[in-house]
Design a binder for these strands. Sequence first.
DNA 1: CTGAAAGCGCTAACAA
DNA 2: TTGTTAGCGCTTTCAG
Lengths: 350, 350
Amino acid sequence: MDERRLSTRPTMRDVADRVGLSIKSVSRVLNGDPGVSEAKAEHVLTVARELGFRRNDLARSLRLQDRTETIGVVVRQASTRFYDSLIRGIDEVAARHGALVLTATTQSAEREQSAVLALSSRRVDGLIIVPSGEDQSYLRAEAAARMPMVFVDRPARGISADTVVADNVAGGYAATQHLIARGHQRIGVIGTRSSASTMSERARGYRDACREAGLASEDLVRWNAHGQEGAQQACEELLGLAHPPTALFALNNVCTIGAVRALQGAQLSRQVALIGFDDFDTADLLNPPVTVITQDVEEMGRRAAEAIFSRIDGRPTTSRREKTVLPTTLIARGSGEIEPDRPVARRIGA
Amino acid sequence: MDERRLSTRPTMRDVADRVGLSIKSVSRVLNGDPGVSEAKAEHVLTVARELGFRRNDLARSLRLQDRTETIGVVVRQASTRFYDSLIRGIDEVAARHGALVLTATTQSAEREQSAVLALSSRRVDGLIIVPSGEDQSYLRAEAAARMPMVFVDRPARGISADTVVADNVAGGYAATQHLIARGHQRIGVIGTRSSASTMSERARGYRDACREAGLASEDLVRWNAHGQEGAQQACEELLGLAHPPTALFALNNVCTIGAVRALQGAQLSRQVALIGFDDFDTADLLNPPVTVITQDVEEMGRRAAEAIFSRIDGRPTTSRREKTVLPTTLIARGSGEIEPDRPVARRIGA
DNA sequence: CTGAAAGCGCTAACAA
DNA sequence: TTGTTAGCGCTTTCAG
């Protein structure tokens, strides 16, 4: 109705003046504190609504000594499915605790630090971080101040903190085992950065399984397959070897899709088996349907959030760091069950 | 090194005391303001680092009258690809403006309001909202206070504000036209909520094209196909009709994947054409590859962010509402080019 | 039931 | 170059 001067938002002062009460009484009403007569409380509420009052949580949190009822999440935007499920899990728990979840996404590992520190400066009550940078020692001050924080997917480096991860080694082992059991002797691996712990652990599981079966492995591992194109190229290179692998193990989502692309593109005389780490929406719709190792990312989010809130609520022996390792599961859909040297059927259509 | 008492984070006061300077000088140094001798500045920086000082941005923003250098984004977690690209576009622009992008995701339309208002109470400088609720009039107070806000994907209801949307009608029209041009006379449509403007507009485009071609349309539209399962069922129902459609138009991502599932599952004697609204990662890997209508979601994010910042920076004639409509593009991959009554080729493999 | 005063951590305005 | 004072909007004593 009335044209306010210029983006000045009403304060409790304004409401109090309009109602003819003290600012404190207004505060009480607006926070549902007892000790204000029904009639006056009603009036305050009405006026607050008329004025479009929104409590300034900056001021409130400042006064409340850094309780912002907010937890910050920092993720690098890459494997989308991972992010989605993670947030879903976190949200579920945070909602129960009445906290707002604020996510900052970073497009590159370099920006991780600034995003995290920005959140810290805004005094979030806790931090859930999917580390993408090489080193998290920049969080030492927060650790010293006992800010609750949990690292998800990979452990932090340069600092000790709670961690929630999948059992990547076991997942890599299971995938490889699955292929070996079907007779594969040459299994190619496509991964992004060998420096990322998730990647290196999945590869370790692969190597363990190969060693146990008495197979060579190292010469069939291709790192630095970045993006779908990179993964596709790495696969094509593997498939072009004089003595090519009969099966592939893609260490993440993006690599898997790149591999599918490579396999569909190449005119191969033999079908090549494929197992991918991490599930994706259309995995069962591809031809052949893609066998994957899944991790329960939503559960990772839930566990991470629970860890945060138990620290926030100051659960007893708070100083010990906890590392939660969640199991992985193999979902057989077809691509991982292809046997070595199985001839390719005729293509559909044209 | 030293064990702080209990999660009390150091303030400028602490730094000042340690250095033997006034709090104001510390403030100057920490904000890169001029007027402090090189030597003392150096000392301040060192001590601040030792203490693990992080400026309290709650206090800073409070003092600075609601400039938090933060913009809030509210999305409902549903079509993941949409969200990802949107944030990427927003981040790009926000980074140029030195602002932090904080995203609150809601798992249901009902929580949209509380997430938005929580952000508003935290005094973000601007709000980018992908509305999922039916009514946004709860934002009247923010509008009155001239808080910069932009609605993306759908316009707001109950309030007038800047909007960035795709040309959904044109997209729906193009998809339908494309099918009609290939001889289809019965085109089925699968959508979620007819109350969502995106959905209804895409359907309008469909109807326009049908009418122009003199085709009946209404009896082949199926609403309330929620989730992949719902979409799949709706498709199966359409395909089971006595006089089934020869082509399908899926109004969003999820519907498209559900449709693919239905088409793969059904043992049809004739191939059915399919066009989906909105692209997805593996669309070109499916069999047949899926023809889609794409919208440039990243650009939507960029435009939205630019609109926000131009309001924040108080660009002149600020009071007019702007509606940006971005074009859509049809990407032909195969599924949309199938002609009516084309027999199904033999399936690969088993 | 109601209110006055103090202060959370910071910065702008104004001295010195 | 440096420091003092006041106050952002709120909540917590502690009095009326």
